[in-house]
């Protein structure tokens, strides 16, 4: 079917005139190979019309993060940018909603570990007679002291492909 003479112009005008709606998304930060951008994994429910069932589907989005707000594993809120920064970077990090392994209960405002409050864990230890060796949350330094030294979850790991002692990379896993 022949298109209208001005079809393309109309489409372009429509694109320009369309109102920019800024969308928010919630996702999990995963190791990214970009320097100033975080890679965010968005979980979606994908409908399979043949089985009439929803399946989990992951979508990956790059969000600019110049202040280095989020670390690997954090659940973050991202917002779409009015204009793309690059071909890949389309969003920006707004806030870290749930830092990994440091959850606060939204109702009571207390810190939580799995199914228990931190306070209760410490109280239990005190009832038994706590020891010096006990882990103390308040005295512990911020997350990231062992990153790149003992804990290699901050960047992508890969199977080692060459054994060169000169450029040793701890993120290369022995085959």
């Amino acid at each position: 079917m022949p298109r209208h003479k001005y079809h393309n112009c109309v489409v372009m005008a429509h694109n320009i005139a369309r109102k920019q709606a800024l969308t928010y998304l919630l996702g999990v930060c995963v190791p990214s190979s970009k320097q100033n951008a975080a890679k965010i994994r968005i979980q979606r429910a994908d409908f399979d019309s043949y089985l009439s069932m929803y399946f989990t589907k992951y979508e990956f989005i790059y969000a600019t993060d110049p202040q280095k707000l989020c670390k690997t594993g954090d659940t973050v809120l991202i917002q779409s940018l009015p204009q793309k920064l690059t071909r890949l970077i389309t969003h920006k990090i707004v806030d870290v909603i749930y830092p990994l392994g440091d959850i606060t209960d939204p109702i009571t405002g207390k810190k939580v570990v799995m199914g228990r409050y931190r306070e209760h864990i410490e109280e239990d230890a005190k009832l038994f007679g706590d020891l010096k060796s006990m882990y103390k949350y308040d005295e512990a330094p911020e997350r990231g002291i062992t990153a790149g030294k003992r804990d290699f979850t901050d960047k992508k790991t890969y199977i080692k492909y060459s054994d060169d002692p000169k450029d040793y990379d701890p993120y290369a896993v022995n085959p």
């Binding site: 392994g101 570990v113 882990y135 512990a140 003992r150 804990d151 896993v173």
Partner: peptide, 19 residues
């Protein structure tokens, strides 16, 4: 997370996730 890092230092361990 903080306890995880503390235990790595205490027990002199290294944690590398599988690629």
């Amino acid at each position: 997370y903080k306890r995880f890092e503390w235990i790595l230092e205490r027990l002199n361990l290294i944690y590398v996730p599988q690629p």
